[in-house]
């Protein structure tokens, strides 16, 4: 039974899919329309179906305006779908919760808390005892390489460091699914690929399933075990792409990507999709 394809070619996702075949996250025919006063409802998202499996890094990729962020926000429980079903571990998603932590593109460090207090914040909300809170926060601050800045306030940090605080804060809260909405979009190129490498290594270290939105093709190919490519008009999953040239391996460094055969072809393929879907003239 193949639930996970809207249209386009079916490519078998070889990736790091875990032993079990039960999906971690499942979206089934999810749609969202916005009500406009004195006009027909605008259908932003239509019939989105896909699944994400345990320990997988799944990337939502597509041209701007395809609704990928809206899909992510619905998974986070920050927005309500108008049709369809979203489930995490078989349970329907009915609102935001600790199990689905989200990292935003905009900086979200709490200015009035130090780095340490920021990372402890989620655990404080969930009444984790003080000792454990300290320890877990220190562990994740160390993972993102900010131990020297544990007592600094966010205004002394660079953009990349603030984003690392946000990632540490979310992971320390032990979500079962990590959501990221163009988390590195505001960073400069160099910081950006450093963060991508860092994210892969800590997602692995923390055994986290990741669902991430981006419009950066290279970022998607580098990070993803599976790419859900979304189209505009209608906003739906156009094609599911498994970067099979990686042969189920996770890459550690960006330059490894260049040497791999198959990378060029995949990038060319996605670029073509972007061109087709990104221009307004081609509603075929």
């Amino acid at each position: 039974m193949n639930l996970s394809h809207a249209k386009g070619e079916a490519s078998t996702a070889t990736a790091v899919r875990a032993s079990t075949d039960e999906p971690k996250l499942r979206l089934e025919r999810v749609g969202k329309s916005f009500h406009v006063p004195r006009g027909p409802d605008i259908e932003a998202i239509t019939d989105v179906s896909f699944s994400t499996y345990e320990n997988e890094v799944c990337v939502l990729l597509g041209p701007s305006g395809c609704g990928k962020s809206t899909v992510l926000r619905m998974v986070a429980g920050l927005e309500q779908p108008t049709s369809g079903e979203l489930t995490l571990d078989g349970q329907p998603i009915v609102g935001p919760a600790q199990e689905r932590g989200m990292v935003f593109q905009a900086y979200t460090s709490f200015d009035w808390l130090t780095v340490q207090q920021n990372v402890e914040y989620g655990m404080r909300l969930n009444h984790v005892p003080r000792g454990e809170r300290r320890e877990r926060a220190a562990h994740f601050i160390d993972l993102v390489g900010l131990s020297r800045f544990a007592d600094a306030y966010p205004r002394h940090l660079s953009g990349g460091m603030k984003q690392r605080v946000a990632i540490a804060r979310t992971l320390a809260n032990q979500p079962s699914l990590l959501l990221m909405d163009e988390p590195f979009g505001a960073l400069d190129a160099q910081t950006r690929w450093q963060m991508q490498e860092l994210m892969l290594s800590i997602a692995e270290a923390a055994n986290t399933t990741v669902l991430m939105v981006t419009h950066d093709i290279e970022e998607a190919i580098f990070l993803a075990d599976r790419i859900e490519f979304m189209s505009r008009h209608p906003g739906t999953v156009h094609e599911e792409i498994a970067p099979s040239f990686k042969q189920g391996r996770r890459l550690r460094q960006k330059e490894e990507l260049i040497g791999l055969s198959g990378y060029d072809d995949l990038e060319r393929h996605i670029l073509q999709l972007m061109r087709e879907q990104g221009s307004d003239s081609t509603d075929h």
Partner: peptide
Amino acid sequence: VRSELIETAMTLGGQ
């Protein structure tokens, strides 16, 4: 107050 700050707290499990 920036909505991202509130939404961050929501997805961390805040009431």
